[in-house]
Computed example of a mutant assay.
Amino acid sequence: MSIKIHTGQILHFLSAVTHEYFPSGALVTEDGKVVTCGDKESLLARYPQADITDHGERLIMPGMIDSHVHYPQLDVIASYGEQLLDWLNNYTFPAENAFKDPETGRSTAQFFLNELLKNGTTTAMVYGTVHPQSVDAFFEQSSALNTRMLCGKVMMDRNAPEYLCDTAESSQTDSQALIDRWHKKGRQLYVVTPRFAITSTPEQLTAAGQLLKDNPDVYLQTHLAENKAEIAFVEELFPERKGYLDVYAHYGLLGPRSTFGHCVHLDDQDLKIMSDTGSRIAFCPTSNLFLGSGLFRLHHQPSPVSVSIASDVGGGTSLSMLVTMAEAYKV
């Protein structure tokens, strides 16, 4: 048994609205797991044999969570700020094509994870590319660092370059294989990941829903109502549905394990459906601004919906959740 004490300023959270702060505090770990935290002097007296690391006046707090981020898009941060659909075609899709090479995935994942940790982020919900090997590479690197990460292979079978398209069948087969290989292996978790309704046929969205039925403890991530041109295109592709959110609802993609990025242009009825199903929103302030998508109405909650903060790199401009929260405050 190895007991260690880290001393410094301690900040931790007892609930969503209650925190506890110790200006002269200590964090106790046993075999790498947190046991307790509190006042420095009392904990030093309780654990006299512990190894002590003094961090001076540095702040020790729980790791941050980034609920929507694209690790293959690191190199397109700060690309010319076109609107969403042009930005995808001109920057994102060409960059993601490089991830057919497993070595690109490994080196980028290693750099990405190290940058997350430098910025205090210890858990993230991450998009891979359409290539299964991009997810294998990511989970391999995350496992080596013992970080808690969620990741998924993008499902995308239309309205994208041919070199990035899979099929409904192959995306389901590849995703299931990744689930079998990685979900709940160590600290890794799998996320079913249709990019968004525009790039998935009804058959592929059906496959995504089936993956959730077959694996009820996996997660789902996608994009929703980010940009007005995107919404209009979805309405053209799915004229039989009541709206954008109804597309996902129809295919069984809503629920408490489902996180929808952006949600800038939802109406009150959409928010009620999100609330009723326990579905969650990832608020992406820097990318909403950088791509001119609009302002998310954080405090407009006619029906309560769980909202998290996300960097959305590479449309977003920083992996720092502190910077991202500061930008959210400004808008």
Score class of each variant (00 low, 15 high):
Q9R: 15
I65S: 08
N119T: 14
K184I: 07
I198N: 08
V17C: 08
F260A: 00
Q221F: 01
L254Q: 02
S200Q: 10
D267H: 09
S134V: 05
G105T: 03
T121N: 06
Q9A: 11
F196N: 12
D31F: 09
L237W: 03
Y47W: 06
G120P: 05
P62A: 01
V34A: 11
S143I: 13
T206M: 02
V218H: 05
D268K: 15
T104I: 15
R158Y: 13
R241C: 11
H223L: 12
V331G: 08
R181W: 01
D174S: 07
E203K: 02
F296R: 07
S143L: 11
D86H: 14
S287V: 12
E96P: 07
H223E: 10
H131P: 09
D75F: 08
F99Q: 03
F112C: 09
V69K: 06
E327N: 15
A310T: 12
S279Y: 02
H250E: 01
Y251A: 02
R297T: 11
M1T: 13
I3F: 08
Y251V: 02
E41S: 13
V313F: 14
M64P: 04
G32I: 04
H262T: 14
R46W: 09
I3E: 08
I273K: 04
T259E: 07
L205M: 02
S303P: 05
S293M: 03
N119M: 15
A45L: 12
G32P: 04
N97F: 09
T18H: 14
V247R: 00
V154D: 13
L245M: 10
S306W: 01
Q73A: 15
R148V: 06
L74S: 08
T29H: 02
E169C: 10
Y251D: 00
G315E: 05
S142E: 03
R148A: 03
L224A: 09
P102S: 07
S42M: 08
P72C: 12
H223R: 08
D268F: 15
S311Q: 11
Q301Y: 06
T104D: 15
L88D: 07
S200L: 10
V135G: 06
R58N: 09
M321K: 05
F196E: 14
V154C: 11
P132T: 00
D75P: 08
E30Y: 02
D217I: 14
P239N: 01
D75W: 04
V247K: 01
S170T: 14
I52Q: 03
T222G: 06
P304A: 10
S308C: 07
D66R: 10
D51K: 13
N227W: 06
T36Y: 04
A109I: 08
L319I: 11
P48T: 04
L43K: 00
T193W: 01
K213Y: 03
L88F: 10
D276V: 12
P256N: 13
T286W: 07
E103V: 11
V323W: 08
E96I: 07
I5M: 00
G81K: 10
A229G: 09
C263R: 07
H183C: 04
T317A: 12
G120H: 06
V17L: 06
V130E: 05
E96D: 11
C37V: 07
G243E: 10
A232F: 04
T129C: 11
H300M: 11
